[in-house]
Computed example of a mutant assay.
Amino acid sequence: MQLTFNQVNHTYMAGTPFEHIALKNINLSIPPGSFTVVIGPTGSGKSTLVQHMNGLIRPTSGEVQVGTYRLRAKKDRTSLLTLRKSIGFLFQYPEHQLFEETIEKELMFGPMNFGVSKTEAERRAKEVLPNVGLSPDLLPNSPLNLSGGQMRRVAIASILTQQPELLILDEPAAGLDPEGRQTILDMLYSYHQKHQQTTVLVTHHMEDALRLADFIVVMNQGSIFRSGTPEEVFSGPEALVSIGLELPETIRFMQEVKTSFALTDVPFLKTRSEVVEYLSHFLSNDRKGDS
Rank of each mutant, 00 (worst) to 15 (best):
L212T: 01
L212K: 04
L212E: 11
L212R: 04
A213C: 09
A213F: 06
A213S: 12
D214R: 04
D214W: 05
D214H: 03
D214A: 03
F215E: 07
F215G: 00
F215L: 01
F215H: 15
F215M: 03
I216E: 10
I216W: 06
I216G: 01
I216H: 08
I216D: 07
I216L: 13
I216A: 05
I216S: 03
V217I: 14
V217G: 05
V217E: 11
V217D: 11
V217C: 10
V218Q: 10
V218D: 12
V218Y: 12
V218P: 05
M219P: 00
M219I: 06
M219L: 11
M219D: 06
M219Q: 05
N220P: 06
N220C: 12
Q221M: 13
Q221W: 06
Q221D: 15
Q221T: 09
G222R: 08
G222W: 12
G222M: 11
G222L: 10
G222T: 07
G222P: 03
G222C: 09
S223N: 03
S223R: 12
S223C: 10
S223P: 00
I224Q: 04
I224A: 05
I224T: 03
I224H: 07
F225G: 03
F225E: 08
R226Y: 02
R226H: 01
S227V: 04
S227K: 14
S227F: 08
S227I: 00
S227D: 12
G228R: 05
G228K: 06
G228H: 07
G228N: 07
T229C: 05
T229N: 07
T229G: 03
P230N: 08
E231W: 03
E231Q: 14
E231A: 10
E231M: 07
E232K: 12
E232D: 11
E232W: 06
E232V: 02
V233H: 05
V233R: 04
V233L: 11
V233P: 03
V233W: 10
V233A: 09
F234E: 05
F234T: 00
S235M: 12
S235N: 14
G236F: 12
G236N: 15
P237T: 13
P237G: 14
P237R: 14
P237C: 14
E238A: 15
E238I: 09
E238K: 14
E238Q: 15
E238T: 12
A239Y: 09
A239P: 01
A239H: 11
L240A: 05
L240K: 04
L240N: 03
L240E: 06
L240D: 02
V241R: 13
V241C: 04
V241A: 14
V241S: 13
V241T: 14
S242Q: 12
S242D: 15
I243K: 11
I243H: 09
I243L: 10
I243C: 08
G244P: 01
G244C: 06
G244F: 08
G244I: 08
G244R: 07
L245I: 02
L245H: 05
L245G: 01
L245K: 04
E246F: 07
E246Y: 09
E246H: 13
E246T: 14
E246P: 00
L247P: 00
L247Q: 04
L247C: 02
L247E: 09
